[in-house]
Every structure is written in structure tokens, then in C-alpha cells.
Design a protein around this nucleic acid. Structure first.
Length: 470
RNA sequence: GGUGCCAUCGUCUAGCCUGGUCCAGGACAUCGCCCUUUCACGGCGGUAACGCGGGUUCGAAUCCCGCUGGCACUACCA
């Protein structure tokens, strides 16, 4: 049974980079019929933001990456005794030791070493001291792991292959901090073991500390899981993706009008690609196609233009009913925007190819509305006001005489195009379109008429005629 | 500084393992044309890449070495 996990630190909302990591862990588990678990790594009490736990879970659910332990998420801060017990075991069998070096001393050491252009290392003062817990006051010691002085360790990464690390380069990593909380290294190893995680799928920044984790597994005499280190998501300038590059949170993208399906599809393609040229994938198609072998090694820039395009594709191809549903949800705090259901449905029918994001609905709506405009806008290129007036009146007469009440684009075209072909398309259609929209850029006249209906069409044309006659 | 990872169009990538079918394919963006009353949609087409230098080989984007560059790690942060 394959088990993967996503283990974010609750220091803010779910980041798109984190979502990508979660997605790959989710896809790998689902593809193999395994489990995908969520664990909250809240061992850093200084950066801890309580609300972010709920936000992360909500974001995961919005994306459709529902963990199998959604109702029983593992929270590290509730498991302190387990980590202490594990650390004590290491203490007892000589794989760890108590260290009383003060933070100040360590910082000073490190600064001096850096100034001397030497690698900053823990000097190992306490390594052979063999201090006992009874010898030291609470809150004044840490527990460090005893990393062997020599030798090497090979990490067999599913994406990068075999990587050999020289153990002499590793510091004696702190396992339990002076506040009694475990560090990432201890907690993640203990939990991955307890949760029976078989594949540790995480961001590449963890690759350099994987040997420490493997050492820990060996010290505990536990089975070592498989590792897969995912390439980073980068900002356009190839630096680490951060706030200063714009939106980074999953919910920020939601609020910008992106669909979860499009966001998922987009981040899946950031570091993974099938062997053919397909680019549109639903979550279930991704589950079917995904494999770690086809994950890219190099970092990928988060390029929002492609996300925009993908989102537009999803909007174009989903059913009107689904799109309407997405909009209802999107505007749940501003329901007035979409309160008239028939109107909204009709609008989507006529104009949805103009939408790329859900926020474009407002623009779309506005493009069928009319506002005050300058009458000269009605005149086509080199044409004259008189000619325009005559043509508008001709069009008005024609439309008035139509017996049809429900304007359809096809019927309207059949009725008006002959006139336009005779008198000149620009001469007929431009004034008509401006009369209907009041804008220099807008949907076509037939689109607008079919949307607003006969009565409103005639009213707007009459308005234009009066403008010209005044 | 040290260690490690990575390196194909501006961007995401296919191809690399199993060298020849690659004067490198697709997509986004961009440009042009068509459609068209405008804008968008749509259709068609163009520009654009194997980081550099050495090998190995009849032949290298593909294998090897070096260099350069980018990134990560080097915390009582994860």
C-alpha cells in the first residue's frame, strides 16, 4: 500500500508552490491506489499562524486534493510526547546527546567562522560530555543527533537518481529544541514512520538534508521510505517565488477569478508533462497519466499568461450550467451581480467566449449595457451625419417591421445583411453597433440585439437618432 | 566560502536512458494574414532554443570531462 503525505507548515495560506507539491503527492498516491495524508508541521511556535491550518485545509479541498485523513489531520504540536520518547531512545542508545551550548555562543561561533571564511559548523563541545537530563535545567538544553564523523551516505532519489553525500560535512543536527518542540528533521521522520508513509514527496530544498533523515531512520532501525524531490517553482526572474512577484496564495488565485480545475491543470504542467502533446487534463485524467518518472528535474517559472489561457479554455468548454454555478459561488458576496438567472444564462450563451477569468463576467455584462456617449462615434469612418441618420432610420424601420419578438442572431443577420450589403456594411452596421453599445469597442450588433431583445434594441436606436437630430 | 542540484525557443516543455528518422516537435506569449462594422472568438502562417569548450564516434541536443551560469542547503525555520 502506497502512502504519501503533504506536510505544510502553518505560517500562512497555501502557496501555489505548496499546492504543486500536494498535487504531485496526491496524484502519485491516487495513481497507485494508495493513500494521501495531510500533516500540519506546527513545531515553529514563533512563525505559527493558527488560522492558516483551516485555510490550508480549505484550499486543498477547493482544489479537489482532499486528503484521506481530512477529518483527522495529524497535528505535530499534539504529539510532543511521541517525539520526546523517540529522542530519549536515541539518547539512551548513544545516537544523540544533550547540548547546553547557548544560542548566543553558537551565533558568535558561526559569525566568527564566516568572517574567517570557514564553513560555519557546530564545534561539538557537548558531543562527548555525556550530560544527563538531571544535570541540566529544563529549557536550557537541546538534544542533538550524533552524526558519524566520517563515511558517506547515498540518497536514491526517484527523480534525481543516486546522490552521494559526505557525512563529515553535516553538523550534529538539533532534534529537540530548548522549548521542548522537535525540529522538522526529527518530527518528520518520526511521523512519516508512524503514518507508514512509503514515499516522501517534497520540494527540492529538502534534498540536502535527506542524509540526516536517512541516518535517523537507521538509528531507529526503521525502514527508509522512498524519496522524490520536486523541482522548485520560480518567479519570472528565476528567484524563489514570493509575495513581491504578485499573487502566490491559492485563494488569491481563486479571488482573481481562476477555476480550481485550471489552476490544477496549470501547476501539474509545471514540472510534469506527458510524452505526447496533450495539455488539457482534468484531475482524474492526471491521476491516470501521472508518473514520477516524467517529472522534470529543473525548476519551472510560474508563468501566469499560460494560466490565463488555460482558464479561458476551461470557461469556453464547460457547460453553461456549470459556469453559472461557478459564478454564483464566485459572487456569493456580491450576489446582485448575477441575481437575474435568465439574464445571466443568456449573457453567457452570447458572450462567454470573451471571458478568460470569472471576473470578466462583470466586463461582459457591462459590454451589453449602454452608457452616455458622443454622437460623433456613430459616424462610420469618412461617412457623414446625414448618411448615418438615414441609414439608422432605415435599419430602425426594418427592425420595427419584423414580426419576430425573440431576436435570434441568425434571423437578425438574415434580415439585416441584405440591407448592409446594399448600402455598405460599414454604413449600416457600424452606426447600428454604436447605437446599441455606445462604445467604440463592443460585441457585434447581432449579439447585442439577441441579448437585449426587440424593445430595448428599438429604444437604443431611437436614442441614437435623437442624438443625431439634436 | 563549502556541499549538492539543475541547464532545449521569452515561458512551460517533447526529444536525452536505448547516439543517426532533429538544419530540434507542441503549447503560451509575440508578430503577420484571413474572417469581420469595432473588440474579442476562431482559422492559417511567421519569428524564436540544444549555455560554452573539449573529447568519444563515420555521426551527439542525446555519451564522457571541464568551464560558466542559475538555484538550493549550510538555523534551537520549515
Amino acid at each position: 500500500m502506497i502512502v504519501t503525505r503533504f506536510a505544510p507548515s502553518p505560517t500562512g495560506e497555501l502557496h501555489v508552490g505548496g499546492a504543486r507539491t500536494a498535487l504531485f503527492a496526491f496524484l502519485f498516491a491516487r495513481h497507485n491506489g494508495g493513500k494521501f495524508l495531510l500533516r500540519i508541521e506546527d513545531t515553529d511556535r514563533e512563525r505559527y499562524i493558527p488560522e492558516s491550518v483551516g485555510h490550508i485545509i480549505a484550499a486543498l479541498n477547493w482544489l479537489g486534493l482532499v486528503p484521506d485523513n481530512n477529518d483527522k489531520v495529524v497535528i505535530q504540536s499534539e504529539r510532543l510526547e511521541i517525539y520526546k520518547k523517540a529522542a530519549n531512545e536515541l539518547l539512551n542508545n548513544g545516537h544523540a546527546y544533550i547540548c547546553v551550548c547557548s544560542k548566543e555562543k553558537l551565533t558568535a561561533d558561526r559569525e566568527r567562522q564566516i568572517a574567517e571564511k570557514k564553513p560555519p559548523r557546530y564545534k561539538g563541545h557537548c558531543r562527548e560530555l555525556n550530560l544527563k537530563k538531571n544535570d541540566v535545567a529544563d529549557e536550557e538544553f537541546v538534544i542533538r543527533m550524533k552524526v558519524p564523523k566520517g563515511g558517506s551516505i547515498a540518497v536514491n532519489d526517484l527523480i534525481h537518481g543516486e546522490i552521494i553525500f559526505d557525512l563529515s560535512l553535516f553538523d550534529d543536527q538539533i532534534l529537540i529544541k530548548s522549548d521542548g518542540y522537535p525540529t522538522y528533521h526529527l518530527a518528520s521522520v518520526v511521523d512519516d514512520h508512524e503514518m507508514s508513509v512509503t514515499h516522501v514527496i517534497r520540494a527540492e530544498e529538502w534534498l540536502p538534508s535527506t542524509p540526516k533523515h536517512m541516518l535517523l531512520y537507521k538509528m531507529f532501525d526503521w525502514n527508509i521510505p522512498a524519496f522524490a524531490h520536486l523541482p522548485m517553482n520560480l518567479a519570472p526572474d528565476r528567484s524563489k517565488l514570493s509575495k513581491r512577484h504578485g499573487a502566490t496564495g491559492v485563494f488569491e488565485y481563486k479571488n482573481l477569478g481562476y477555476l480550481p480545475e485550471a489552476l490544477i491543470n496549470f501547476i501539474a504542467l509545471l514540472g510534469w508533462h506527458p510524452s505526447d502533446d496533450r495539455e488539457i487534463f482534468s484531475l482524474s485524467e492526471l491521476i491516470k497519466e501521472f508518473s514520477l518518472e516524467r517529472v522534470q528535474k529543473s525548476g519551472a517559472i510560474f508563468n501566469i499568461q499560460k494560466l490565463d489561457w488555460l482558464n479561458g479554455e476551461y470557461i469556453k468548454n464547460m457547460s453553461t450550467k456549470d459556469l453559472y454555478g461557478a459564478l454564483i459561488d464566485f459572487y456569493k458576496n456580491k450576489p446582485e451581480i448575477i441575481s437575474d438567472k435568465n439574464n445571466a444564462l443568456k449573457l453567457l450563451e452570447v458572450g462567454r467566449s470573451r471571458m478568460q477569468k470569472l471576473t470578466d463576467f462583470q466586463t461582459l455584462k457591462d459590454s451589453f449595457d449602454i452608457h452616455e456617449y458622443d454622437k460623433n462615434l456613430l459616424i462610420w469612418k469618412e461617412s457623414s451625419a446625414e448618411k448615418t441618420l438615414t441609414n439608422l432610420k432605415l435599419t430602425q424601420e426594418l427592425l420595427r417591421s419584423l414580426l419576430i419578438n425573440e431576436f435570434s442572431q441568425k434571423e437578425l443577420e438574415a434580415e439585416i445583411m441584405p440591407l448592409a450589403n446594399t448600402n455598405g456594411r460599414g454604413e449600416i452596421l457600424w452606426p447600428l453597433r454604436v447605437a446599441l453599445s455606445g462604445k467604440n469597442k463592443s460585441p457585434g450588433p447581432f449579439e447585442i440585439m439577441s441579448f437585449i431583445g426587440k424593445e430595448e434594441t428599438l429604444r437604443r436606436i431611437e436614442m441614437a437618432i435623437q442624438k443625431l437630430e439634436s
